[in-house]
């Protein structure tokens, strides 16, 4: 359940930045290739912000698909999972998107 640790990090960063102002909404970016389950993170976020200035804030999740670049054929490939295999048969694939795990912004009153 690493989502709780992640949600706690988000809550801590957001509350520090809010400096006492109530937080209405927090936007995070989560790549498809991270080991983060959005539903679990949403649940944990609700717990992590309880009793803070972000209590009750909405968590908006921007999803980023997995994508890579093949060093053999030069094509960009869609990566539905962490199996780094290009349709051309090469495993020389560099991940270009999908590993994001970022706090984007927040809305405060």
């Amino acid at each position: 359940m690493h989502e709780l640790a992640i949600a706690t990090e988000i809550a801590g960063a957001v509350c520090a930045k809010a400096a006492g102002r109530p937080v209405r909404r927090v936007t995070v970016r989560v790549g498809a290739l991270t080991a983060v389950v959005p539903e679990a993170m949403r649940f944990c976020f609700t717990l992590a912000v309880e009793g803070t200035v972000a209590d009750g804030a909405d968590l908006e999740i921007e999803h980023r698909p997995g994508a890579g670049h093949c060093g053999s054929c030069g094509n960009d490939v869609i990566l539905p999972d962490l199996i780094l295999l290009c349709p051309c048969g090469s495993a020389d694939v560099t991940v270009t998107s999908g590993r994001e795990l970022q706090i984007v912004s927040m809305e405060v009153d």
Binding site: E9, A13, I103, V104, M106, E107, D109
Partner: peptide
């Protein structure tokens, strides 16, 4: 509400 940009990694700390 005011939008504040953070653009930081969740696991930055």
């Amino acid at each position: 509400p005011e939008v504040i940009t953070l653009e930081r990694k969740v696991l930055a700390h």
